[in-house]
Design a protein around this nucleic acid. Structure first.
Lengths: 329, 329
DNA sequence: TTGTACGCGTTATCAT
DNA sequence: ATGATAACGCGTACAA
């Protein structure tokens, strides 16, 4: 038994003859033998399971990518993901964390679906945790978030590069990191390009399609009319398309549009297809799992206060072109 | 120890004094004591974990709903979900099933993202399995699928009820149960309504937005022009909207449209919002987990050959109205 | 009504 | 280089 265990677990210290080694491996393969993970976990006091606590998994296609990234990273270490969907309600979250604790998970990945700041639930204390798409207000645990500012910069720079100077921002009304970051990226890029910030070109509404429609109608009334719009997300961009159609503006000839989120169904389904900024969900899932693994194996507590910031690449499609005529201003 | 175990597990046979019972529970609560699941699993030879094998989780928002349904059913039994995302590749699937087996899951839920017929992977044999959104060609394991025919019937009936008699079908080219079922529902409903089937009103293309656009352009050339279109899915319906706009047809005044899938982002984002048929992903996840639980607890092998068929409810929005003028035919 | 002893399948330690 | 044994924490048959 000992020898088999040593050989199958590649234990350095113990050595066995090459012949035995071969014989054990062959026999195991023939019998389809593998260690019983329950017994192994009991003995090792490690379950080799990671709890993935995911908020509102059913309302967005983002969750799948996070899970996929986390899983690919977990697979390399032979870790298994135990999934629990939770809600934003503190009571539900507490119950679900308790469930994962009882399950003896070695650590927890806590993912929100929209970049948020949150209070770390009490129940998590003592359990290695990494946040995904969220920041702990008290910075006690590591986390990973998208580079909202950089994403916005690329989006607006793409418009500037095409010659636009009158660029509107259709944004949302929630005071969340995404809203603040994307506005900051918008303003920075304008400034770098030597374009004066014009408050009348920034219109905020609810972050759904109807909000985008309303915001677009308003911002397109500005004079001179903007030749391009940067949108808080793809759904708002969808509303912008409708507003443009009603006003007789063709995209990208009369109006260039850039979105955010890269929701394929929307971005690819719109006509013309939407140039947008992708959120690094897969990468965040992967990063978080790798981080958790190092915490678990190196037993390395964190001095890292700030969350990691992952880039949001621009995805070029067909909704951006040069402005039709140059402004006179 | 025995008494504590008995009390915490609600063992019928053994009895303890009410006072002891109280004392044990209070102490357990105070200490935050709960059975160690690894030890428990080892002793019971049941991990109380269910493997959820989900195909292409990252490409569709459907997966989240399935997971949610399965989880809600699992929670009632204290079962935990171990999630593995897999692909349609047989090699990947085999590897992932093996991983779940090694994890000692008590059973497996195998979910595909589109209603499919499949060969049951070898690796599953001997492990209680329930299929979600898929049918085993050899009918060896139970499964649950959406009522494609009934969904299509409701969609087309909705159009008939509004007075339409010239109803086109924008469908897709894949030979899958969804395609066949939705066509069958379309034909049945026409027949019941006494409307003759017209082959020129059924046009198939790829099941994406561009396919819907092309199909719509073609089917709308028919004379007399159809006053309503039933679409294979919401993405194709999105293409239909674009075709209608180009042809100067207003929805629903000049053309009524019904979709399939109820992808909220599309159906709610389109203008006017899209009346469509919802797929019962949550319910399928829930049903499958409940079925698996009865198999596990009642040790009841299946004589049920046919998969369960769950209803697809119509979701009314704003894309259906009466035809503008009656046909002369 | 409660305590004792065993076995679930591992891995770590120590002996051979 | 290999084998024997203890321990991980639980549930349960049986003894007390």
């Amino acid at each position: 038994m000992t020898t088999v265990s040593h050989i199958l677990n590649n234990v350095e210290s113990a050595r066995a003859s090459d012949e035995t080694r071969e014989r054990v491996k062959a026999t195991a393969a023939r019998l389809g033998y593998g260690p019983n993970r329950m017994a192994r976990s009991l003995r090792m006091q490690r379950s080799e399971m990671i709890g993935l606590l995911s908020e509102d998994i059913a309302t967005t296609p983002h969750a799948g990518r996070i899970i996929l990234g986390a899983q690919d990273a977990a697979r390399e270490e032979g870790l298994t993901i135990v999934l629990i969907n939770t809600t934003q309600s503190a009571a539900d979250t507490a119950r679900d964390i308790d469930a994962l604790r009882r399950q003896q998970v070695d650590g927890i990945l806590y993912a929100t679906m929209y970049h948020r700041e949150l209070e770390l639930p009490q129940q998590l204390s003592g359990l290695p945790t990494v946040l995904i798409d969220a920041e702990d207000r008290a910075s006690r645990v590591p986390g990973v978030v998208p580079d909202e500012i950089g994403g916005a910069r690329q989006a607006v720079q793409e418009l500037v590069d095409h010659g636009h100077r009158r660029i509107g921002f259709v944004t949302n009304v929630d005071d969340v990191p995404a809203t603040r970051g994307r506005l900051a990226g918008y303003r920075e890029t304008l400034e770098t390009a030597g374009i004066e910030f014009d408050e009348s070109l920034v219109v905020a509404r609810a972050s759904e399609t109807p909000g985008g429609y309303e915001a677009a109608l308003e911002v397109l009334r500005a004079t001179p009319r903007p030749t391009a719009l940067f949108c808080y997300n793809d759904r708002m961009a969808m509303g912008v398309y409708r507003a443009a159609a009603e006003l007789g503006l063709r995209i990208p000839d009369d109006l260039s549009v850039v979105g955010f989120d890269n929701q394929e169904i929307v971005a690819d389904g719109l006509f013309p297809s939407l140039t947008t900024v992708a959120l690094p969900h897969y990468e965040m899932g992967q990063w978080a799992m790798q981080r958790l693994i190092t915490i678990l194996t190196k037993d390395e507590r964190d001095e890292l206060a700030e969350p990691a910031v992952l880039p949001c690449p621009l995805v070029r499609r067909e909704s951006v072109g040069p402005p039709r005529r140059l402004e006179q201003d």
